[in-house]
């Protein structure tokens, strides 16, 4: 009798040990992401600090020129911010309607066969290297736009903006579609039973029921559009320009960062440090949108 009990206890002990071990491994995996993020933030803050020892925060925020590489150096971040905001805004103005309508179509209207064909294609599109999209913007979209808008320069924000839009459509469509699929059938049946059409059901019931997932898709898209580098670096002209006019050429924060990081600026120069300050601004922007998304989702949070 006694042997049996201690035997079982030993088993229980071993089981606990394994459980603990697995738990620890999982924790480690989760923490690695957290640590990397913290490390990145620390480096950004540290390097930016060096930068701000030479440039006042006031100049950084109010100067209308960004020319760290010139003899007459100016360090106003606003031209890069305006470039980033403008290209991202063009992209989203294009991608959010198209992506959302696509998701509604796929989830509520398309036949099973159409859906099963289109979804993998969308996912494939997500995997196309962004440099391909960059040349797509420069060599195809901008020339087409130039036919429509005479006088459009070769390097402008409209073309790359639209192409970034095309790039993020699959994200919006597939994430929103997942959210809409997850709406229980009983809710659709409730709507149809009231005499609603398919369209009314899609717009008035399914979309609001999936709104938190759809907003998540938008946030993902915004982060992608704001952080997109290659397309703008290639097709928008790499010229920091304080303008919100889509016809102008401009540079974005990320485009500037690659430009400098790939050039041969000496490590430790202010020009070099400036990319960290720019990176910090980019991170704050993305953080802002994520928080915004978080709170809108909370507000719309639904429970079935």
């Amino acid at each position: 009798m006694e042997i049996q009990i201690s035997d079982r206890l030993a088993k229980k002990f071993r089981r606990n040990l394994i459980e603990r071990g697995i738990e620890f491994l999982l924790l480690l995996a989760a923490m690695s992401a957290v640590f990397t993020t913290i490390a990145i933030v620390c480096i950004l803050l540290y390097e930016s600090y060096t930068f701000f020892e030479h440039v006042s925060l006031r100049d950084f925020l109010t100067d209308t020129q960004w020319t760290p590489l010139f003899a007459d150096a100016h360090y106003g971040i606003m031209p890069l911010v305006s470039g980033t905001v403008t290209t991202a805004a063009i992209a989203l103005a294009f991608a959010i309607p198209v992506g959302t309508i696509g998701a509604i179509y796929l989830s509520e209207f398309a036949s099973h066969r159409v859906r099963e064909t289109v979804k993998p294609i969308l996912e494939l599109l997500e995997g196309v290297p962004t440099i391909v999209f960059g040349y797509f913007a420069l060599l195809l979209v901008t020339p087409l736009l130039q036919k429509l808008i005479p006088g459009l320069p070769t390097f402008n924000m409209l073309g790359p903006g639209i192409v970034i839009g095309i790039m993020v459509i699959p994200y919006i469509a597939s994430v929103s579609e997942d959210a809409m699929r997850a709406v229980p059938m009983s809710m659709r049946e409730g709507s149809y039973a009231m005499g609603a059409t398919r369209f009314q059901t899609a717009i008035r019931v399914v979309t609001p029921a999936a709104i938190s997932g759809i907003i998540a898709a938008y946030i993902l898209a915004i982060s992608r559009a704001v952080g997109e580098t290659m397309v703008v670096a290639i097709a928008a002209g790499q010229q920091p320009n304080l303008t919100f006019n889509p016809m102008d050429s401009a540079a974005t924060i990320t485009a500037y960062i690659v430009q400098v990081a790939m050039g041969d600026l000496p490590h430790g120069s202010i020009g070099y440090q400036s990319i960290f300050a720019a990176g910090l601004v980019l991170m704050l922007m993305t953080l802002f949108f994520n928080l915004l998304g978080h709170f809108t989702r909370k507000k719309f949070r639904e429970a079935y």
């Binding site: 009983s186 809710m187 049946e189 409730g190 008035r204 609001p208």
Partner: peptide, 14 residues
């Protein structure tokens, strides 16, 4: 429009 329905599980809209 003439025949309405109430389901097993309450299914209010969001």
């Amino acid at each position: 429009m003439r025949i309405s329905m109430v389901f097993q599980k309450p299914n209010p809209f969001p």
